[in-house]
Simulated scan of single mutants.
Amino acid sequence: MRVVANIPHEACKITVFAWNGKYLIKFEQAMLEQTYKVNEFDITGDNDIKKLLDDVFMNQILERFHQMHRNLNDALERI
């Protein structure tokens, strides 16, 4: 697996990997992470990856982080 790009974002860390015919787009925020796999044939490279990360998709990613954080906190409170 090799790093293809680090894409700056104010709310999370975004790293793009190339591995086994796929791009892995990894989003990290605090102790949480989300990874999306995209077939290399579905996009043509760095420019398409950046287009994929539009405002709508990024808002969904950030909302999912918020939900994941809530879920983890709720689970920890039940211990």
Rank of each mutant, 00 (worst) to 15 (best):
G21A: 05
D74V: 03
I49P: 05
K22T: 06
F17H: 07
D54R: 10
F65K: 09
M58G: 05
G45D: 03
K26C: 09
A30I: 08
N73E: 13
T35K: 07
K50C: 02
K13H: 11
D46W: 01
R78L: 11
L53Y: 01
E40Y: 05
L62P: 12
L24Q: 09
R2H: 05
I25R: 04
L76M: 12
H69E: 13
Q67V: 08
M68P: 10
L52S: 02
K22V: 01
N20P: 01
D46P: 02
N73Q: 13
H66F: 07
R64I: 00
N47Q: 15
T15Q: 10
N73L: 13
M31D: 15
L24M: 12
R70K: 15
F27M: 04
V3G: 02
G21T: 07
L24R: 05
A75F: 09
R2Y: 01
K50M: 06
E33I: 00
I49A: 03
V16F: 03
M58N: 05
F17K: 06
E63N: 14
L76C: 06
V38S: 08
N59S: 15
Q67H: 12
T15F: 00
C12L: 04
L24I: 10
I79F: 10
V38T: 04
L24K: 06
N20W: 09
E40P: 00
V4L: 13
N6F: 06
I49S: 04
H69C: 03
K37R: 11
V4C: 06
A11D: 15
N47Y: 07
I14V: 11
H69I: 08
F17V: 06
L52D: 01
E63F: 07
D74K: 14
N20A: 13
Q60T: 11
K51V: 03
I61R: 07
P8N: 15
H69V: 07
E33H: 15
F65G: 06
N59R: 14
V3M: 10
I43N: 03
N39G: 03
T35I: 12
C12W: 02
I14N: 08
D42M: 13
N39M: 07
N59M: 04
E28Y: 03
I79C: 10
I25A: 02
I43M: 09
T35H: 01
R64V: 00
Y23Q: 02
V4Y: 08
G21Y: 01
A18E: 15
L24N: 07
F41C: 10
I49Y: 02
E77F: 05
K51S: 12
V16D: 01
L72E: 09
K50V: 04
H69L: 06
N39L: 10
T35L: 10
M58D: 04
K50D: 00
R78M: 09
N59Y: 02
I25D: 00
K37G: 14
H69S: 10
I43R: 05
N59G: 13
R70V: 07
C12K: 05
A30L: 14
E63I: 00
E40M: 15
K13L: 11
K13A: 12
T44I: 09
D54T: 02
A18H: 08
H66C: 04
L52F: 09
Q34K: 15
P8L: 09
